[in-house]
Design a protein around this nucleic acid. Sequence first.
DNA 1: AAACACGGCGAAAACGGTTTCGTGTTGATA
DNA 2: TATCAACACGAAACCGTTTTCGCCGTGTTT
Lengths: 339, 339
Amino acid sequence: MKSKITLKDIARELEVSISTVSKALKNSEEIGRDTKEKIQAFAKLYNYKPNNIAISLKNKRTKNIGVVIPDIVHHFFTTVIRGIEKYANARGYNVIVCLSEESFDKEVINMEMLANGSIDGFIMSLSSETQEKGDYNHLKEVTEQGIPVVLFDRITQEVECDKVVIDDELGAYQATKKFIDQGKKRIALITTDDYLSVSKARTKGYLKALKESPLGIDESMILKMPSMEMDEGAIKTFLDNKEPDAVLCVNEIFAVCGMRFVQKKGLKIPEDISFIGFTDGVLSKYANPSLTVVAQHGEKMGEEAAKMLIDKVESEAEEETYQTKILEPTLVIRDSIAH
Amino acid sequence: MKSKITLKDIARELEVSISTVSKALKNSEEIGRDTKEKIQAFAKLYNYKPNNIAISLKNKRTKNIGVVIPDIVHHFFTTVIRGIEKYANARGYNVIVCLSEESFDKEVINMEMLANGSIDGFIMSLSSETQEKGDYNHLKEVTEQGIPVVLFDRITQEVECDKVVIDDELGAYQATKKFIDQGKKRIALITTDDYLSVSKARTKGYLKALKESPLGIDESMILKMPSMEMDEGAIKTFLDNKEPDAVLCVNEIFAVCGMRFVQKKGLKIPEDISFIGFTDGVLSKYANPSLTVVAQHGEKMGEEAAKMLIDKVESEAEEETYQTKILEPTLVIRDSIAH
DNA sequence: AAACACGGCGAAAACGGTTTCGTGTTGATA
DNA sequence: TATCAACACGAAACCGTTTTCGCCGTGTTT
């Protein structure tokens, strides 16, 4: 077990000073040809690599970015992480992933753990508990310490920082409009409670489209699930009672469950009833019939967030100017609607 | 923007030495009551938190663990990460995630990036390219440097380190046996090329079960996909030609595609043809019919891997003893087979 | 020959902690 | 009163870098 070699080791071995070694390895003009070559050769031979931790301490830069998200077993979030990881890696950054598991406390603890020097900045999506509670002091604290934060998807207006979201309202609007244009009359929405910023926006888009149409709004056509957890019973009862001919769902799972249920009842998709979901994940692609969805472009979102964060981290300027990037959703047409 | 406060700041402010502050904050007996209280109060007031980087440098321990996996947009891997993250977090560790994207080079680069002090140990699953190439020098190098490595799922026997896998052979064996017991005669296998350690093991289990049965082995009932990428055409042709009455697939996607195809042909699942897949992901649960799978218990696997790694990291002893933990797969019965 | 420039290198501080080993003061003991 | 332990604290080394500054010797200039 040959342990890592340090500058000091090289210096001792070659009988020069540590500073000389350091400079030689950075190809400094200050050091003579011979010495430089000797040191560089030696370093290469013993595969010297500078210690990241020491450099971090010196530079006060870790080249790590912290990602705090509610859940990772969720297609959308994994695509975002992938986007973040790819972009960050290309710029020499590593990604530390922390899971809040929808818990406010975990979110706080994770942030505190990372905020003490482990990372240069945060990319986060708020836990449902945090959004429900409306307590964002942990975010404010880190921003006050000068640690940049980029919020994505589940964001809040109460914290001043960069943000990147998709236009959820527009996505829901377009989807609902699609239904209307196809002559659907009883258009339902299956969503979650309003405290989730995204659900709220989607509901808004749905309502807007209906309001603009001759159909008008029927609040009873909206099913609000109390949590992200599946409750098949609630969906079944709702679909049985309301007999919609089109259903917009705020995620894939609600949609797939709904489809399965109406199929069992003997209804034909998309003729008798159409479905559109949110999130372009595996489920949508491989569902039967395949599910039309409002794609959220998670990977793109991750990239954007990472870019915004790293740009801010690396900018010397202390501009206190924040931007919110709004990505356009796209409707991915599949077999759960007529086309 | 109030920047982080350091020991030095406290020392200056309270006109004591840095060492005194440090000791006081660790509640050392060495420091007098009054001084301690004064310092602790001050630290609390200004919300002092020690700098992780400095501590890492001193202790030569980062409390970070590096996870290098081929892909994150993959249900199995995300469950493993979740297991790792939960366990590691409970023990005060953070998780740095790096994606190799099935590329050998990226795997190497990522490991090198992290091996220079950023992490205390690795948890990895090999990229397909690495397994195909059979080059494990990057792994050997880090282990030689004394950095512990735990391999999971896609492992190799060529590197001496801790490992955790599920018994893929057993899983495939049990699934195949299930088919045989249910009277299926033409049992097919859809897998990937053999260089993936898991595919190999699963094929072995499939063959073993058939060999032990009166049915015997028919190599032509095995479809080897050249990559993990979906090729619906290949699956269709195969199913059309071979007309199996049971299909074992090494992942969910192959299975769901197969099901969709035979359903279009008018076959009934599970009466005419049964399906079993690997990986208990969302697809299986929400497929129509729901898919019976060999569950891999990713979260458990992640936990085990994290436990093994952290135990090794924290054990002073330099025992060079490695273990391979084999988790039992379980068959999750759903509607794609008779029951 | 004195002055100076400059190339080549080392000493030391700094990043922010921990920890060992003093050291000065106090009070008790011989 | 001299000795000594206990107490409370500080100095300094150390982790592995980077970087500023100073120094020495050589060669050139006047």
